[in-house]
Nucleic acid binder design. Structure first.
Lengths: 345, 345
DNA sequence: TTGTAGGCGTTATCAG
DNA sequence: CTGATAACGCCTACAA
């Protein structure tokens, strides 16, 4: 095989020559800016099309323009990430917005908090991205401090309280939790256990508080068990509480993977869902609909969330003032995994 | 809130001044190249660290270096992508390799083939990426032609026959299919239906041929049904064949989502798995282990595949000769969804 | 071994 | 409105 012929790249100088004008006019014409006569603009556009010119993003960046990319650092273990439906959906949404503007998404996985911060800092210094999306926010998140410190446009997906004044997209998790508890209470449940994400995530505290409030308001004693969101910890948590001396009649999980894993664990204990125990998941995904019985879940449109986040990101890059924007509250998708509790023993 | 102070960026000129030397020496020292005395190198490194310098990738690109990024165009609908476990796993693997070299992954979703090709062309012209990863390859894939035409380093995930001489990573789908059929035949199945990916994907033909060969070799009449890999088409396909006059006793799917969807559809028909019908999935994922009964699947490590692909990509960028590399053959994870067929009616 | 200077492709400034 | 020309930050001959 012969070495691929590498045609010299087309530059605006070539276009200028072809259009019989200067590079400055070409630049103006190509970027739709005033200062060029319609005739020249026409010639330039035609020449550019004829030559198949497209901008070298690196040169643009160097000359002070934007990089045409936004960054997302994901602070999760690769293997864990692979089974987490959230990110793929979120990314898909982000991309759908970005595609409209021919922008790209730069992704980086960081094994730990230091690496996340370092990635942001590096991106900023290297001007690889015009802004960053911050997910899985924790209170006093170092990434937020870094983003502010270096002044890079940022959008936080999470509680505005943790966003320290940056633009934030949040969902009313408290109301959503209230709905879930209300649903179970209405079915007659009196003992509900919540199996949660790690305490370090900002949303965990929000949901905890809402869960406790909702439970107490109905005369129940709230019970909370921490997990790490993994398949295994969901199943283990479910087994532990269900084999205790006074097991709950309903379990509310902080994601879908754990809820579905618990479903299987429950079956293995010889219990039936929802006859012996009801199950509610957070993050409605395909998983919840595929299993038997399908799982009642607090669903919100994560693809839309990603799309909105990207849109806000573009606005911030364009100079929009920071603000908190509320997303739609997750709604309870009631399915067969929730039903009346067993008659009291 | 005050506008974030934007400290002027640190350049190699600053480092040079700080280290009392020239920018050339700084460049050499920073890039680990010969031509600098150990003492100078030391001073430069220290100065760079002190000043918090990091390279502006744009300048590097412009000066002829690489962009430090590789690209992945995904030609799937965003919503569809969100439920497809494959990509997230693959991306996770790619990232794990890239992270070692502080490289990033640029992702772009393309709604159609033209957009895919355009993205590659644009990436090349704008020098945004040093190479591209090509998945979901089809015969005579236009992306492959474009990659060759513009000479951008590329790695094809798929059949070398379709890679037209580019570096390719392939798995022996034919052997894998043989294993699956053998497993079912050994259990006593005589009527197996294969529910496949769209015919346009290159691997569909490979698996079709292997399936037909394996079935005929055992005196069975192969039956093939096309789907679009979606949840719905998997369920619909299963319903259709199972309610036919002479239903198969085993179904072999081209992905996990369909297999699991079929499981539910089967239950809804009042049939039991594996008593009435056995189910085998391709692409073993969490899904297969979470459902009841767990699904027998042809599993391969997609995270590892991604990691290998990235490694090959880096090699190609570094000038490695194109070659085809075989990945591990998917192995059959035998679970409860496969068992002996029902006694002949 | 070191430093100087020119180029990479764009944008922006400032004379004509 | 147009056309030189200077940044932008880095790399790399080439000269000292």
């Amino acid at each position: 095989m012969t070495t691929a012929r590498q045609p010299r790249r087309v530059t605006i100088a070539d276009v200028a020559r072809e259009a019989q004008t200067s590079t400055a006019s070409v630049s103006y014409a190509l970027n739709d800016r005033p200062g060029v006569s319609p005739a020249t603009r026409e010639r330039v556009l035609a020449a550019a099309a004829r030559l198949g010119w497209s901008p070298t993003s690196a040169a643009r960046v160097l000359a002070g323009g934007g990089s045409g990319a936004i960054g997302l650092v994901v602070g999760r273990d690769p293997r864990e990430l692979a089974i987490e439906p959230f990110y793929m959906q979120f990314i898909a949404g982000v991309e759908s917005t970005l595609a409209e503007r021919e922008m790209s998404l730069v992704l980086e996985l960081a094994p730990n908090a230091d690496a996340e911060v370092e990635a942001i800092r590096r991106w900023h210094r290297s001007r690889r991205v015009d802004g960053v999306l911050l997910t899985d926010v924790i209170p006093n998140d170092p990434r937020i401090a870094v983003a502010q410190e270096c002044g890079i446009p940022a959008v936080v997906i999470g509680d505005p309280a943790a966003a320290a004044g940056l633009t934030a997209l949040w969902t009313d998790d408290a109301s959503a939790m209230e709905h879930a508890v209300e649903h179970l209470a209405a079915l007659g449940h009196r003992r509900i256990t919540r199996l949660t994400a790690p305490a370090r995530f900002a949303y965990t505290a929000v949901r905890d508080a809402a869960f406790e409030r909702a439970a107490r308001a109905r005369g129940m004693e709230p019970d909370i068990v921490r997990t790490d969101l993994s398949l295994e910890s969901g199943a283990a948590g479910a087994r532990a509480v269900l084999t205790s001396t006074r097991p709950p009649t309903a379990l509310v999980f902080d994601n879908d993977v754990m809820a579905v894993a618990a479903l299987t664990a429950t079956h293995e204990l010889g219990l039936s869902v929802p006859r012996d125990v009801s199950i509610v998941a957070w993050d409605d995904s395909l998983l919840c609909r595929l299993v038997t019985p399908p799982v009642t879940a607090l669903g919100h449109d994560i693809v839309a969330l990603g799309a909105h986040a990207a849109r806000r990101m573009l606005a911030v890059i364009d100079g929009a003032e920071p603000a908190a924007h509320q997303e739609a509250t997750p709604t309870l998708q009631i399915r067969a995994s929730t039903g009346p509790p067993p008659a009291e023993a």
